[in-house]
Design a protein around this nucleic acid. Structure first.
Length: 564
RNA sequence: UGGGGGAUAGUUUAGUGGUAGAACUACGGAUUCUGACUCCGUCAGCCUAGGUUCGAAUCCUGGUCCCCCAGCCA
């Protein structure tokens, strides 16, 4: 591995290195800033991995900090789920912090702002606040409460905090500039009143809660964060971020740096849309393997290594082509999983759509065992024994009565190799009254034991098989992309772009016996088919596999192009 | 309408004044007891118009197109 070409550093690396070089900072600390109001998806994981990478590359640390400043949206359940996902990804966080643990410090700063004449309690209704904010190209109007006395502001804020006023009746605002071109600077709201529900950590101790802008920079500062990395839609919040830190005269102010967000083709990423998929039952929950959430991807069989590789290959930039970022082709993600699983996972034979084969010249009652390689990419994985007998199952796709051009699997009178076993020739086709194919009568070549003919003749195809009397039945869920449109919603409602074939469950699959005791989450390559893992719905009665991703399939392409 | 940001093959991404390079995709081929893996090859790009320069993706000027912002969400 001497010739591995390191990825060039990102623009963030460049900026951080500069800060270190010119003495703005002497070390690096970043933070993962999730709001515990939902499950993490692949887009979050990228943001997190960027934070991790920057910290690691500069010998710094990364914290996990929950931005739990809005009790109406946040729950303990998500706090736990997020920590699980972070752990699963393998991110080693230095500290787990909660914005809510620092409400008092933030409140003290608000009091300081009032004393400085930089903050005031506004009694306007939400509607008035909104109207008086003005619009693009039109300045806002100063609130009639803007020039209240320090004493009155202090008193009012104290009573807001204690819960003397109803929700929505007042807010604390910074006094900046109602005519500013940047909307965020038009007297932003610092605190709003929220009585219900209780906060997941502070209970009913507070009746006011800080807004994102008011909390973010100060939290970063008090936790010693040097570089506050976030996505690009926060770029025009940066002036406000800096304004608070400067106005409060906070030493060693952290630096916010923004990067473009990650979107995927054939996927939706917004929390709103994902929630709709769940709530309207288009998928079976947040961990449905078709979802882009990390728990879903885990269940589907994606590995942290594959996700990390993917994020790495995508890189970091500020490019913006769509919804605040860049839209990466899912096929890159799929390529990354295949790469990882190919190296690590054992091979097995599994017949998804069984077609019965009787080998007429094979002795009834006889059973042989063949040795099969577990992983050609990893000799240390060794071999296993696979039983063979007179009645087998092969894949329906591996036989064609009227083969199209370029089809070189089994055909009437044709010969193929049964992987690791014998050459097999199809002699007769058996059908039911309505003409459906139900069975193949075949013969084998006893002189091809192990897979090579004594006379040296070749076959064009090798197919997988399972001995009928030894087979383990199972269900297999074939997952495909959730949407059939690379850019869901590009022509109307994204629900209309749902792929009707995103899940197909097969109930009559036949697996080689070594799979009988496969454990939940264990992954395998079913040869010639794809990568599959044991689903958590499995029990001692029934094995259920999820297809993580197919193998690349040249034949499928030929068929798609009309060749088959 | 005001503010902020972005533009290099189909998709991502390097390149920071000196021959535009990579990955994924697509296509073709070699190999193969997985139509997999591996290997080789092909197609394909600097948003645009000027300027500076011996030389511009890179510097300057003017356009064009795309994204984000008017929550008491984050």
């Amino acid at each position: 591995m001497t010739d591995e070409t390191p990825k060039p550093p990102s623009f963030i690396h460049t900026a951080v290195a500069e800060d270190l070089h010119n003495g703005r900072f002497s070390h690096v600390r970043t933070r993962l800033p999730p709001e515990p109001n939902g499950y993490l998806h692949i887009g979050h994981s990228r943001a997190f991995l960027i934070d991790e990478k920057i910290a690691k590359d500069f010998g710094g640390k990364v914290d996990l900090r929950f931005d739990d400043t809005n009790p109406t949206k946040e729950e303990t359940e998500f706090v736990e789920a997020i920590q699980d996902d972070v752990k699963w990804l393998g991110i080693q966080v230095d500290r787990v912090l909660y914005a809510s643990d620092y409400f008092q410090l933030l409140y003290d700063w608000a009091i300081k702002m009032i004393h400085m004449g930089k903050a005031y309690v506004d009694d306007q209704t939400p509607d008035e606040v909104s109207k008086n904010r003005g619009s693009w190209g039109e300045p806002g109007k100063n609130s009639p409460y803007r020039e209240r006395s320090v004493a009155e502001n202090l008193d009012l804020l104290e009573r807001m905090k204690k819960g003397e006023f109803p929700d929505g009746s007042r807010v604390l605002r910074a006094k900046i500039d109602m005519a500013h071109g940047n909307m965020n600077m038009r007297d932003p709201i610092l605190y709003r009143i929220i009585h219900e529900p209780d906060h997941h950590r502070t209970g009913n101790e507070w009746c006011i809660y800080p807004m994102y802008d008011w909390a973010q920079g100060q939290n970063d500062a008090m936790h010693g964060v040097t570089h506050s990395l976030c996505s690009i839609e926060y770029e025009d919040h940066r002036p406000l971020y800096d304004w608070f830190l400067q106005t409060l005269e906070i030493p060693n102010p952290p630096r916010q740096i923004e990067f473009g967000r990650l979107n995927l083709t054939y996927t939706v990423m917004s929390k709103r849309k994902l929630r709709r998929l769940v709530e309207e039952n288009y998928v079976n929950g947040w961990n449905d393997p078709r979802m882009p959430t990390l728990r879903a991807m885990k269940r589907r069989g994606y590995t942290p290594a594959a996700i990390r590789d993917f994020i790495d290959r995508v890189g970091i930039s500020k490019t913006i082509n769509s919804s605040s970022g860049v839209t990466v082709d899912v096929s890159l993600l799929e390529a990354c999983v295949r790469d990882d699983l190919n190296k690590k996972v054992e091979r097995r034979m599994a017949v998804l759509n069984p077609l019965k084969v009787v080998i007429e010249n094979y002795p009834e009652g006889q059973v042989e065992e063949f040795s099969a390689i577990n992983n050609p990419e990893d000799p240390a994985a060794g071999t296993r024994r696979v039983p063979f007998s007179r009645v087998l199952y092969i894949e329906q796709d591996d036989f064609r009565e009227n083969p199209p051009p370029k089809y070189f699997r089994l055909t009437p009178g044709g010969e193929v190799r049964l992987r690791y076993a014998y050459f097999l020739k199809c002699e007769r086709v058996i059908k039911d009254e309505s003409g459906n194919l139900i069975e193949l009568r075949c013969t084998y070549d006893p002189n091809s034991r192990g897979g090579n003919a004594a006379d040296g003749r070749k076959v064009k195809a090798t197919i997988h098989w399972v001995s009928a009397q030894h087979a383990v039945p199972a269900s297999v869920r074939l997952y495909d992309r959730l949407f059939s449109n690379p850019n869901p919603e590009s022509n109307g409602d994204f629900i209309a772009d749902l792929n009707p074939n995103s899940l197909k469950q097969l109930e009559n699959c036949q697996l080689e016996p070594s799979l009988a005791h496969a454990k939940v989450e264990e992954s395998f390559q079913f040869e010639r088919l794809g990568y599959f893992c044991v689903d958590s719905d499995s029990n001692s009665e029934r094995l259920i596999f999820n297809r993580t991703v197919t193998l690349k399939d040249e034949w499928a392409k030929i068929v798609q192009q009309g060749g088959g």
